[in-house]
Amino acid sequence: MNLIDQAFARLKAEGRTALIPFLTVGDPDLSTTLAIIKQLEQSGADMIELGVPYSDPLADGPVIQRASERALRSQITLLDCIELAAQVREAGVKMPLILFTYYNPVLQFGLKPFFELVKSKGISGLIIPDLPIEEDEEVRALSEAYDIHLIPLVAPTSNDRVARITSKARGFIYCVSSLGVTGVRSDFHTGIDQFLATVKASTDLPIGIGFGISSREQVERFEGQCDAVIVGSAIVRKIEEAIPLLENEETRAQGLAAIGEFVASLKG
């Protein structure tokens, strides 16, 4: 059984909502990313999204764009990101790992070698934000063959596409909270509750919400309606703020603690 399914089954039994943080791999470097992931699990993360840095991140706002730029300056590749997953496991991290990557790096890597490697390094899920259902046939077939859940995005504007998207989905459904790119925001799409209800009604899979969620209040707002809450930019910003601490051996623990406290505060 896929680790993502196991995690949701356990959370459901415990009556809890999953907290899924996102970070950009290699921001600011690979060993720090590994340390942050360990910290995130200790602070209550239930799964994690490993963001692959990309030169043209269309779905992302300025915070994650900057993280991508930082990671690319150290020439982090898709291969580095996948291999980090194995190190994460060796370091004792148990939570499911979800790879978040734009399509072109995957295409250049080669689809089959990509899935072989992803499978062998212990990654359980995959989010490709620029691969809508119209374009995902080949990737979907491979993801099913390798039991790597291809987690789709649905948007408040998906309308009659919702059922088409959720009927093919695995793992969970990633509901986009509002129109726009990733990043902290104070208000969500009007009609968000109706949107979530529509998605929920269309599937037996868990539903998660993301884009712009940054505080305990916002997490709480969605806890009853959603099975998972994804927090990206807010955590990446915390990492960005902590970089001076993280890069200095003497203050590294302090930097990690600051990130951990923030994640713990989201859990409430």
Partner: peptide, 9 residues
């Protein structure tokens, strides 16, 4: 059409 779902509509 390799775009995020948010643009598809």
């Amino acid at each position: 059409r390799y775009v995020p779902e948010t643009l598809m509509n």
